[in-house]
Design a protein around this nucleic acid. Structure first.
Lengths: 208, 208
DNA sequence: CGTATGCTCAAACGATCGTTTGAACCGGTC
DNA sequence: GACCGGTTCAAACGATCGTTTGAGCATACG
């Protein structure tokens, strides 16, 4: 009745870990269950037993990471939302840094590739999933941006936030020209990325 | 020996057209040759006969569009490069507008999705293909940006161009919140997109 | 002990994939 | 007419995919 704890990590978590890596490397279609279960060191049938289907596994991979990410974002936003001295930099930081921190632990950076890939897949199912589960986060951030940028019309604000999101996604997917040099620590590189993203976004959001 | 011109469009072009649509809708792996050839109204074996393999077909889809796109970009850049009165807006326009114009004809907009998808696929083969075939375009644009932004260090400039590229890719992939309304013509929407992109990018590139 | 339950395993299922084959067809040349 | 290179066609090939099956194993509980 209880989960076995003989192994250091449960079969379910081993699958989720391997899935994140392989989905990032080869895509959702490209990574087969046989590669996946082989990498995880579990039986082929384990995926369907524990998750029901490959599609459900994909959803779980997203849910596990995005729940944590957006929860952190909201905590950070709540600390500053509505305050007198809150700046654009603060709000952008609450939006950007949790995402960049996700790429601190090893497999987290792979997840950002998974996410970027999912965006490109342009699948309406995923779009609805993201909107239904995390739309309220985006809405709260948008409201705070609107408060700090009262001179912008609604459509104008939406446009600019959209372009910030694009820059964000691109930078986090790691496809760009900028790659971390060997003589720069992971932590330093992440902080530089955050700084560039925030300054760039402040300029793009608040220009006349 | 000569191509037959009995049909309005050759088999090869019918395949390329259908491939662009289906690759954009379902991805490179997701779109099967059977769906593709069926949509094109040609025999299944025609793809391997005319292109050699599915991978070669993918490459051709890219080459056909990107050759035209980057050629246009260079023509537009050459008109203004090095001139006294050239502004950041001009250079960004030369970079952005040809890409947006590509989405004028019906299937062109689908190609931008194909491109965005390919970026996310993060495949090193494609990366090398893009770098080898169109890297010189990026280099020329970077040189012109450097001329107009002499106060920026090389790394700083690279960072900012990278973020501009992200916003660009995102906007053109059409995944963002902003969707064309029914009461706005395609042409108008494209011009609005270009305007927002350029203003946003100018601010992001030239902020202190 | 016996039985029930959660989980793992090797093996197989049907479907679909990219590719290949060999015959049929078609326009042009002798 | 016969011939030929270029193209199209239906059919099949082997491989791989996600999923299902049923036996086997380990643990918990009476």
């Amino acid at each position: 009745m209880f989960l076995t704890v003989n192994s250091s990590v449960s079969t379910k978590d081993r699958i989720l870990g391997a899935a994140e890596v392989l989905f990032a490397q080869r895509g959702f279609d490209g990574a087969s269950l046989r590669q996946l279960t082989s990498a995880a060191g579990v039986n082929l049938a384990a995926v369907n037993y524990h998750f029901g289907s490959k599609d459900k596994l994909v959803e779980e991979v997203f849910r596990r990471r995005l729940d944590a990410l957006n929860a952190t974002r909201l905590v950070e936003l709540d600390k500053i939302a509505g305050a007198e001295k809150t700046t654009l930099e603060d709000v952008l930081g609450a939006y950007i840094r949790p995402a960049l921190d996700l790429s601190h632990d090893g497999s987290g950076s792979l997840f950002m590739r998974v996410l970027a890939r999912a965006f490109a897949e342009h699948d309406d199912t995923l779009r609805q999933f993201l909107s239904a589960n995390y739309g309220h986060v985006m809405r709260q951030f948008t409201a705070e941006f609107a408060r700090l940028l009262p001179q912008l019309s609604k459509p104008e604000l939406y446009w600019r936030i959209d372009l910030v999101t694009g820059a964000l996604t691109h930078a986090m997917s790691g496809f760009g020209m900028i790659q971390r040099k060997n003589d720069v620590s992971e932590h330093t590189h992440r902080e530089q990325t955050a700084q560039h993203l925030i300054r760039f976004s402040v300029a793009g959001l608040s220009h006349p």
